[in-house]
Design a protein around this nucleic acid. Structure first.
Lengths: 186, 186
DNA sequence: ATCGGATAGTTGCATGTCCTAGTGTTTCTT
DNA sequence: AAGAAACACTAGGACATGCAACTATCCGAT
């Protein structure tokens, strides 16, 4: 994260004005939204990866680890990982390859379905998951650089957008859902 | 964009519940925000790149094109492009290399400062900028998959986040700023 | 006038992600 | 039993990012 010179004006606000000034008013807000999303993701990812780097995992691999961490048996089929994380099967293969090389997970055959291979979280991986998460929580997640209201509003709006894009079919979680007690359903 | 199976439940809402159920309440919302950001960006980027693909440019290169398009002289120094788009100098070199190969821009020496090279938008690049933008406006920016209120709220929240992260030092644009007429200032 | 630091841009290299396409195996469906 | 579908892997390419090293140029301070 190089300390780049900060600009005096918000470049996205400027771009939005230029869009509007060019007769593209109807699309100006959408353009600003998409561009903001790109930049904000970049910022968030950089913060997360900086914390994760000492542990030798990327965010993609950390997500795999956490998925296994929260799974009942501590293991999941490759395909299920891909679906839950919304990534390509090849990306799962790649991520698991590296996690396996690092001794954090292990591939084991599925007991009944011989097509599928299970990914099993090893003790070392479980330990790393906890440690890295506590570090992430402390350094990033518990201080996202926004007031709490904005954070929940952001989550809510993005959930709406993801739902609209077809990420999940169930009811769109409203912000009030986030206040409900944890219902354990598998 | 493969038509992946949509999940029944919002995976991020589930992860948030698990975080909370594990004693990590203070970080649960932040985790959900960061994860949502990642996924939403992926969705938005996929939509944009799908529109841009026929034109042979990526979003990164399209942004360079638009920056030049809106510049007074139709040309900018490399360094200025990097600062405005918040990307590394190497990324600018890379993007300009490809834009130049495609005959969309041209490198020219700076008249007074012989260190800097100017990137000049060529007619073909200007034409592509307009055409691609109109396509993007029609297919993505003018229908972001969110009600207008949510779009402006999103832009506002992300602006707050970017400002907090040090992206720009000026006043944080409030949502009301987006309603102001286009003031042309260079 | 010149020395040294800062700036501009490029290059090479490594890492990581995503995607397509093709392969082989296994399971499900009819 | 035959065909369709699902699962995982491999190879290869495109792309963005980041760091380090290098050259050339500019500019400020002595």
């Amino acid at each position: 994260m190089p300390a780049r010179d900060r600009l005096s004006l918000d470049p996205i606000a400027e771009a939005r004005r230029r869009w509007a000034g060019h007769g593209w008013e109807a699309a100006a807000d959408g353009m600003a939204a998409v561009t903001s999303l790109m930049r904000a993701q970049q910022i968030a990812l950089a913060r997360v990866e900086a914390v994760l780097r000492p542990y030798g995992v990327t965010f993609a691999r950390y997500e795999v680890l956490m998925l296994l961490f929260f799974s009942r048996a501590g293991s999941l089929p490759m395909a299920k990982i891909g679906k839950r994380l919304q990534v390509h099967p090849t990306s799962v293969t790649n991520a698991v390859d590296r996690l396996e090389s690092a001794g954090l997970v292990r591939r084991t055959p599925h007991p009944t379905d011989r097509r599928t291979t299970l990914v099993e979280l090893l003790p070392k991986g479980r330990e790393l998951a906890v440690t890295a998460t506590e570090e992430l929580n402390a350094q990033v997640f518990s201080r996202p650089g926004l007031p709490p209201d904005s954070v929940t509003a952001l989550v809510s709006i993005l959930a709406e957008m993801r739902h609209e894009a077809g990420d999940f079919s169930g009811p769109r979680p409203s912000s009030s859902d986030t206040e409900l007690p944890a219902v354990d359903h598998q």
